[in-house]
Amino acid sequence: MYKYEMHLHTADVSPCAQATPEQVVNAYCEKGYTGVNVTNHWSREVLHYMNVEGFNLQERADFFMNGYLKMKEAAEGKLSVFCGVEVQIDQPAYCEFLIYNIDRDFILDLGMSFYKLTQEELTRIAHDHGCLIYQSHPFRDGLTILPTDIFRHVDEAMSRDKVDGIEAINYSHGDHYTDDMALNWAKEHDLRTITGSDYHGEWNNPWGGIYTEKPINSQSELIDVLNNKQYALSLPDGPVAGVSEMHPKYRFTSIKR
């Protein structure tokens, strides 16, 4: 099995993170990961706290991509590194989305006021760039329930307008019930899921992500794996052995009918 982190922040871009690329490499190699998706924040907070508000669009894109490039350099020969992002938008409500297979052009296309994009606009931009988009930690306190019809169902082909799934487990929460709720929500509404560590620093324990039976050698292969459901979720008990499709094993079953 090969394991890939789906939610990771580094201090070069994310103001809330303390993880350096070197720390990330050490932590994830120790835990047996094959690769990571660097999904640094792209939000008002980044612009403000990382002092890039005054940057023009090209400079902002360079700033963001620098985080990925530094990670890639530090991980050379040790971990595969893929470029993703966690974008925060205000419409329909404050929410965040993990987007995979991004590049500099994607950041440019988001524009200067990316946080004003609607969820539909963000989803279309992501899909037009060949990315996939998942809602981060959908049941975190303070977030708003999004309509389930904006999400793609498990067996549904990719749609330009639909969010590809949710992050059912976010291991930085420490709240198993919230994750349980998200897993059950996904089951109830037939949604696709991923999990992630939401790694920010040494206080986080790398555990989240996906398992695959074959190594992922490129970002486009990652997209194929996710689209074709050729992965298992990294759950609290570990991988679901032998599972090649997305049939999450639920650790908690608190939702009674």
């Binding site: 329909p92 049941f139 975190r140 306190d141 303070g142 708003t144 329930i145 999004l146 309509p147 709240d175």
Partner: peptide, 12 residues
């Protein structure tokens, strides 16, 4: 509390 548009309240 689980309808579209409902905010998730901290009950902890």
């Amino acid at each position: 509390p689980f309808a579209n548009g409902s905010v998730i309240i901290d009950l902890n």
